[in-house]
């Protein structure tokens, strides 16, 4: 499924941060979001995932097509790797988790509680969760935070595998992940300071 975004404007804390954002993401491709801190990468990704309404503009794919992941993985420390994964699979109406465990090299850790995993292993588990959602478009917010170089490489391979399988990925990151990807710099889309809302005109 193509993801086409047209003239999108989104707000953080009631104030517009981005406007006029537009891009197209084809299956099998990845798009890297760049831009300085505070430009609104997280806001854009949350808007696409359906967690907050857009101020204006259109998003061609519904939120149901997207699997959202921020740097918090939604893992429960006292549940095992398998239990964590099985829970999310059931929430998303999927059955098998074997493939996800295998692909992310987690089968040996299946019965270990999530609190005993290293940061890299947790991140892999978080990514395996994306696989059990069964959704085509991955929307990832700073996925490589707190990962060492080896884990970043593993992560990059995982995303590349998803792309080869016909998925797509939208990733906000500063790191090169080791596969070909288009880049989108958000700096030109910074919302211009202007009349914010109708409170300006109260004194016009």
């Amino acid at each position: 499924m193509d993801l086409t975004v047209q003239d999108l404007a989104c707000a953080r804390g009631g104030l517009p941060v981005l406007e006029g954002v537009g891009f197209t993401l084809h299956p099998g491709r990845a798009l890297m979001l760049r831009g300085p801190n505070g430009i609104g990468k997280t806001t854009l990704l949350r808007t696409l995932a359906g967690l907050q309404p857009a101020l204006s503009g259109t998003i061609s794919a519904p939120p149901e097509a997207m699997a959202y992941a921020a740097h918090a993985d939604g893992l429960k420390a006292t549940l095992s790797v398998e239990e964590n994964l099985r829970f999310w699979a059931r929430i998303f109406g999927q059955t098998g988790i074997g493939q996800a465990l295998d692909e992310f090299n987690l089968a040996d850790l299946a019965h270990r509680p999530a609190q005993n995993l290293s940061a890299g292993q947790k991140r892999r588990l978080g990514l395996a969760r994306l696989l059990v959602t069964g959704r085509p478009i991955w929307v990832l917010d700073e996925p490589t935070v707190s990962l060492d170089a080896a884990s970043v490489a593993l992560f990059g391979q995982a995303v590349a595998r998803h792309l080869r399988a016909g998925g797509a990925a939208l990733i906000a990151t500063h790191i090169h992940l080791g596969f070909e990807a288009a880049e989108l710099d958000l700096t030109p889309f910074r919302a211009r300071p202007r009349a914010m809302d109708r409170f300006d005109e109260a004194f016009a």
Partner: peptide
């Protein structure tokens, strides 16, 4: 707890 570890975001985007 679900808010802090991100589960609530994920539940809000889940099909249920």
């Amino acid at each position: 707890l679900d808010f802090e570890d991100g589960s609530l975001d994920l539940l809000a985007t889940a099909p249920i």
